[in-house]
Amino acid sequence: MSTRYLPLYVTGALLSLLFGLGAIQFDGFGSMRVVLNLFSDNAFLMITAIGMTLVIISGGIDLSVGSVIALSGVLCGLLIGEYGWHPLAAFALILPLATLFGAIMGMWIHVYKLQPFIVTLAGMFFARGLATMLSEESIAIDHPFYDAVADFGFSLPGNAWLGTSTLLLLLVLVVAVLVMHYSRFGAYVYALGGNHQSAELMGVPVAKATIGIYATSSFLAALAGIVFTFYTFSGYALTAVGTELDAIAAVVIGGTLLTGGSGFVVGTILGVLMMGVIQTYIIFDGSLSSWWTKIVIGLLLFFFIVLQKLLNRGRVQHA
């Protein structure tokens, strides 16, 4: 019997339960449309959280993602809205820059032996500061490409719409699953989170892996920032404040061990969906207040952390 998948099953079961409850209680809750809206509304968060999953499985944390989303959005606004660049050209500049940003954070963590928490905290201030400095105002983006992006998609039965952001998310998801389970880099991510010292002694290229992990997280955050501009048609320095917390929460609720070493990208998607379903439930209910979302998410977090703790304790005794 493997306890590895247990948190994942628990998340899945809780998600189905809550969704089923909503579907029974409210008309229109259990529809394809609601499901796909969950995906399209939360696509940017899911993309961010996938990056966060990598970081957390490797035993680190990345507090800078919310700010990177904002910075990426502001850059989109500036380059496309103000300087009239083609969006694709803008993306081609923004994504490598963000990757570099993450790589530098990873380098600091590895070379100077600093805690990821404090390095990415500095990164968070830096990216947000840079975004604010570039523009304090929200910059509108008006480009035919954006209209095309908004129009692109597939109609599905049940008045549902499979849009660009959802498709992009699915692409990221597939690549992430392949990388995590079918590439050496993915194995290194798990290895680092399992035991940093052992990983090093087993010959894992720790420097490359650490830098790669944080670079990936920043790349995905910047991509999420671009997706966010698809929703808002604008870039603003104060968007996505606190998104890092949502992402961390989703990762943990998705069954990933916050201390690293175990977890699944798919679980994180379930985690975001869970948070989305709670919100949708509260909206459909109408009488419940929004702060319940925070409390329920806090309780879920507690539940999963204690669950993981118990599972691990069982393991130690087993061995």
């Binding site: 944390i61 928490f117 917390l245 961390i248 929460a249 943990v252 916050l258 201390t259 207040s289 929004s290 702060w291 319940w292 979302t293 925070k294 409390i295 329920v296 998410i297 806090g298 309780l299 977090l301 507690f302 952390i305």
Partner: peptide
């Protein structure tokens, strides 16, 4: 960092409650 994250997330909900 994990233990106090709980209250960081849930605490604001409690304050509103």
């Amino acid at each position: 960092i994990v233990a106090t994250l709980l209250l960081m997330v849930a605490g604001r909900g409690v304050a509103q409650l």
